[in-house]
Design a protein around this nucleic acid. Sequence first.
DNA 1: TAGATTGTTAATCGATTAACAATC
DNA 2: TAGATTGTTAATCGATTAACAATC
Lengths: 219, 219
Amino acid sequence: MSVVVPGGPRRVPRATVGRLPVYLRALAALADQGVAVTSSRTLAAAAGVGSAQLRKDLSYLPAHGTPGVGYDVASLRQQLTGALGLTCQRRVVIVGVGHLGHALASYSGFAGTDFVVVGLVDADPRVVATTVAGLEVQPFERLAQVVKENGATIAVIATPQAVAQEVCDVVVAAGVTGVLNFAPRALRVPPAVDLRVVDLGSELQILAFHDRRRSDLSG
Amino acid sequence: MSVVVPGGPRRVPRATVGRLPVYLRALAALADQGVAVTSSRTLAAAAGVGSAQLRKDLSYLPAHGTPGVGYDVASLRQQLTGALGLTCQRRVVIVGVGHLGHALASYSGFAGTDFVVVGLVDADPRVVATTVAGLEVQPFERLAQVVKENGATIAVIATPQAVAQEVCDVVVAAGVTGVLNFAPRALRVPPAVDLRVVDLGSELQILAFHDRRRSDLSG
DNA sequence: TAGATTGTTAATCGATTAACAATC
DNA sequence: TAGATTGTTAATCGATTAACAATC
């Protein structure tokens, strides 16, 4: 049922997809300031990239600016919103309601207009049945049910690493198409499922790598 | 005072640096299982990458395996620990003690043996002077002092986006060499400062992009 | 020795950047 | 028109991958 427009939408490179949310945010800020038209130079600066890269990225979308003038903020915003699939709300289940899961459930960037947290699941009996961010935490046994009943398409894994793969298998079997993993362990998912990883410990170690080159005297 | 070994350490590519922590973690798991020697095939599988990529990555380090045998787990672990600069503990200051900052302060991946959280700072008078993860939260005015007094080299920014750049400027002026930004805003830092970004909202939007291609019928 | 696995090479692939003709 | 800015091309750069000679 896919519609192929002649000479139409090219495949959007992975690196470009990763920057679209940043552009969208910068556009929202400009719109809030009452800016109606902007240039690739201005928008790129706000997003922290080069103007050539911004124009290249936009060239993969049906978005178009006006040579000599720039881009209409409102319509470019709509284009990006559509490209990112934010026209309908995505439903998210968070598995693991420890400190991190708790924070994510309450995070405004997570529970905004584009995404809604529809389920919280934890294995700890002390956490189950408590209310977090307006939702009652469900036991692990109900995970598949929670995903299906609420039609969640995205699962956030914020559990200990030991159970992360098991959790992942359950949510994938239950039908989610995207997994965001915070557990410090490599997860296997079927090719059709999109997996993103946020590895907080690694981020610090990467910073330590660069720090090392300055402060360390040991060869 | 840098020691240049003839034919010695090449520049380690950015992408490789990003994978070293993952290898280190996989090695730790193997060591816990009592494995003494491993192959690039096994280790790569545990880390979720290809074996060719693992060997290529290790080729930038002075690490060496034995053809026909594999790698000694203990010594490869030491090599990676050294390469990442984890031989001495790095001191971390967390700015912004909301839900996320609170979670990070308590996160074991953050406050492990390699890193120690030495300061918590917040602007909210209701949060200042409370104790979180064993530390008293300091007021924003004391930020520069907290960084300097404790010799922090890494700052974690978990504040609202509106104040993130100001916080960043203060910690950089106070002498940190690495910044980990959780605020949804592009930050400017001097070239000598290493900046890493964790953009939680963007991660969900990127998942939505791929989800869109499945569920959306709109061209 | 025979079998296994490394370290490296060379080919491929994808991403970035600068430059500029086309356009308003 | 003159000045400005887009969209695209081509060149560069960096990362990945497969293959294999060297080595144990």
